[in-house]
Design a protein around this nucleic acid. Structure first.
Lengths: 310, 310
DNA sequence: TCAAAAGTGTTATCCTTACACCCATGT
DNA sequence: ACATGGGTGTAAGGATAACACTTTTGA
């Protein structure tokens, strides 16, 4: 609120990217058979946006919401055109939650990140999808440009965002937007002409896949400097489980000892004293997150010790 | 837009934290004698929020807007209560712009960051304000708490955010919010009781000082991993000027050689070939930003080589 | 000649990366 | 016994932090 306040009425919509690790796979809560993120109106009687969000998420999904952070606010006209003429502002949030259900009992609605972004999963090595499908089509798209300047610019954007020799797992959104511009995802239908066959990867309605990409990108960036992984872990876990959790989110393999050293050295965890034999092989020590660390210092957390290339 | 769209009308307001370096001081554009950030309604006929923002900022301030990024969206009820009962959602942006006017001709409206946050400027050593005024009052506030648990928690928050032996310049917002909670800034008047004498530092109306704190914090974080300083620099500059620019934003002194090594090693700049004698002392080489770098890679940019404490 | 910046050379240290190997359990 | 993960020691390399010193101008 400030002097100049326009009278134009708008509708506020809240969107949530709700993440959990289920069976060591990073998953997002969806509706409509995976086509939508949960979303709802902002009821004006909540004191803040966050409380409004928590209210309907918990009502709608029966999921307790742990860590929450705001992602982004969109109000592109394209969002409104599809339905009423009314302007819609959509405020999206990232929410982290611990899996409640047994790892086996797959609740419907939970979908793996990589169903929507298969090219983002490098845990089993450089994705074949990239080399065989995506890069060739993006190359074709670059070459199609008439003006040489544009051609060069496209090539460079592809090289930076999809470079498989220096893969940067944080560029989830940039990669999605590039594919969108190139007309290689079905969502590009309306505003842009779909240019080629869509690349594998499940689409979503409206701009929900873009919001999801924003959420994954934020999460991948954040695990490196703030101890948010623990919001997704059970209270006790082994270092191996912790590593696989980070790997699942980052979509990359990590170097075992270096990961351990990092975690220990930063004082993020402490032994519970117990062991578990459930992981197979030698029984592993159980650890828990040292909550105190959140108070002790403004943590600079976990950089990623990547495994030696491919 | 999505299935459940509530009918509740709200008003959207855009706020801008517009930053420029004027005479090597970091400044923000204000209205009303420094009490307000520029803000305006979101006219629904703009295709995106950003274009809406650019439109009225350029109209209102006659300033070309360079780099722009979204900061945060607030809709706290307290914002609305002060005026109409109507709910206001405020979307704030950070904008960087090159100084247009000669360094001498101070345009009105531009105000130093440190007029609002004097405790954030450590360029001349640890601020006396902290030791003499702020820390004692925060200590008193902690001690006032009845319950020992709360007392301990307050002490720890103070220790983490204001710790002068491990000052973290990014915690601008956390520090402001702590002072707010402690009733040590005049803005705390309405919702909380003002507890002690306000601490030095100019207040702003509504929550504009909070928005400004958000902007400064974001900028301080960003200069470390993305080459945004250059958005604030003239096309040609000396390494000394560049260093003082970063120092102005971070509010800290940096180590000269290490700063230079870092900048050079990262390939952020190139020599223009010219020299300038305007800096006093030995003439300095002029450099320019290597724009190509934005394309070459997703820069991890400039970590801050801090000067040996102080 | 002296103050004020600019600009350079070098060392100690720590963190990161990478190597290779041993340990305890279930089948 | 062997497969499977858990868990460890250590060396090489590079980045960082810190040291102090020289150079070139204007006043």
């Amino acid at each position: 609120m400030s002097p100049a306040v326009g009278p134009r009425p708008v509708t506020i919509e809240l969107n949530a990217v709700l993440v959990a690790l289920i069976g060591e796979e990073p998953q997002v809560l969806t509706l409509q058979d995976g086509a939508l993120l949960p979303s709802g109106p902002f009821e004006g009687d909540h004191p803040t946006l966050q409380t409004g969000l928590r209210a309907w998420v918990e009502r709608q999904t029966h999921h307790p919401l742990g860590y929450v952070e705001q992602l982004y606010t969109f109000a592109d006209r394209s969002r409104a055109e599809a339905t009423t003429g009314r302007r819609i502002v959509s405020i999206s949030y990232l929410g982290l939650t611990r899996e409640r259900v047994a790892a086996g009992k797959r609740e419907p609605g939970w979908q793996s990140f990589y169903r929507y972004f298969p090219w983002e999963d490098w845990r089993t090595g450089p994705s074949k999808l990239l080399a065989h499908t995506i890069l060739p089509r993006l190359g074709k798209w670059s070459d199609e440009a008439r003006e040489p300047a544009i051609k060069r610019e496209r090539r460079q954007r592809v090289a930076v965002t999809f470079d498989d020799s220096a893969w940067n797992e944080e560029l989830v959104l940039q990669r999605y937007e590039l594919l969108y511009e190139a007309g290689l995802v079905p969502e590009a239908g309306r505003p842009k002409r779909p240019v080629g066959d869509p690349v594998p990867g499940e689409p979503m309605s409206y701009d929900h896949r873009r919001i999801l990409a924003t959420g994954i990108a934020r999460l991948r960036a954040k695990i490196k400097y703030r101890p948010v992984v623990f919001e997704l872990m059970p209270p006790d876990f082994t270092l191996g489980q912790l590593q696989r959790a980070v790997e699942a989110l980052a979509g990359r393999r990590l170097h075992k000892q270096n990961f351990r050293r990092l975690v220990e050295q930063q004082g993020l965890v402490e032994e519970t004293g117990a062991l578990t034999a459930e992981t197979g092989g030698r029984p592993a020590k159980l650890y828990r997150f040292r909550r105190e660390i959140l108070l002790e210092r403004a943590v600079a957390g976990t950089k990623l010790p990547l495994a030696r290339s491919a």
